[in-house]
């Protein structure tokens, strides 16, 4: 019978296909996603951004991004430096490329940590209830009551400063990158876990979950098969906002002086150091990092938005 419920669900999805042709759920999701024009636009621009930082790094080495030339400091954009140079004469274009890689990697890994933690903790708490719920929620509350900025500061100092460089996928990262990822990831899951819990609490009362339970499906099966997938919409919206948040957090951590160690560039530390130039005519210092941050976050959020509409079998029907 449990399988019947599952097939009932997929049938209901399939029935939506306008053409009457039976579509697989993923085809259907794609179909719905496409209707969200802004989301498609976001998808295109995000892909372009990713391609830009990956392909760019084949042509422009990291050494070039870190090469200092005091003679050329604060050069306005020209043919040689299409995005100008910074206070120590480094090429902003090269730094945008390599900084972008770091920012995207930090954002993606941190948000993965945070989503996994948040979903598991919130989901388990809501599903099992009782003392599991109590303990997990007390812990969440304890973490939540500490402002994230403060957690960022304290954990950054706590985890330590002397972490050796790591080599991953042929790229060398300073230890600070790892610290920033862990700090952001472990300080941003609480909101999501509360939302997931609230959602699971609500779903638990729904008929098909009760039915599944009464029919003797294992708890784990019910949890992963019914509750988590049905919470997807919420998780996706929260995690895209979360990815945006993580990229921003990286900027805040830089702002607080605990970010990615120089000379490694990140969009966050570029923007932070550009702050003093807003009034000073060296517009290229802040325009490019902020442009790339805004564009990335905007695209990511739009994608998340489209995905939410697409994932949720109920949302797009009436309006």
């Amino acid at each position: 019978m449990a399988t019947d419920i599952a097939s009932f669900e997929s049938q209901s999805i399939a029935r939506e296909g306008v053409t009457g042709k039976v579509l697989t759920p993923s085809q259907l999701i794609w179909r719905r996603f496409r209707r969200h024009r802004m989301a498609v636009l976001g998808m295109i621009s995000f892909s372009l951004l990713v391609l830009f930082v990956i392909i760019g790094s084949f042509y422009i080495s990291e050494e070039r991004a870190n090469a200092v030339d005091l003679q050329a400091r604060l050069t306005a954009p020209n043919n040689q430096y299409i995005m100008g140079t910074d206070t120590t004469g480094r090429d902003n274009f090269a730094r945008i490329i390599h900084g972008g890689q770091i920012s995207l990697i930090v954002g993606l890994t941190a948000v993965t940590i945070s989503v996994v933690l948040g979903t598991l903790i919130g989901g388990l708490a809501g599903f099992f209830g009782g003392w599991v719920d109590s303990i997990l929620m007390r812990f969440t509350e304890a973490m939540l009551s500490i402002p994230q900025l403060f957690l960022l500061i304290v954990l950054g100092k706590f985890i330590g400063r002397d972490i050796d460089t790591i080599t991953l996928m042929g790229k060398t990262f300073s230890g600070s990158v790892l610290i920033v990822i862990v700090v952001i990831g472990t300080t941003s899951w609480m909101g999501l876990s509360r939302i997931v819990r609230a959602n699971v609490l609500s779903l638990k009362e729904m008929d098909y979950v009760s039915v599944s339970k009464s029919l003797g499906s294992s708890q784990l099966r019910t949890f992963f098969k019914h509750l988590i997938p049905n919470t997807m919409g919420v998780i996706i919206v929260a995690s895209t906002l979360g990815l945006a948040g993580a990229i921003l957090s990286e900027a805040y951590v830089s702002f607080l002086g605990l970010g990615i160690q120089p000379p490694t560039a990140s969009w966050g530390n570029m923007l932070t150091s550009a702050q003093a130039f807003v009034q000073q005519g060296s517009w290229w210092m802040w325009v490019f990092p902020s442009l790339f941050i805004i564009l990335t976050i905007l695209s990511v959020n739009l994608i998340g938005d489209g995905l939410r509409d697409a994932f949720d079998p109920r949302s797009a029907r009436h309006l």
Partner: peptide
């Protein structure tokens, strides 16, 4: 679409930057 874009732009700028701006 307009509202979505507008609200995400607000969300995309670190507040230390937008407040200063």
């Amino acid at each position: 679409n307009a509202i979505t874009t507008f609200s995400f732009v607000g969300f995309s700028i670190p507040i230390f930057f937008s407040a200063l701006g």
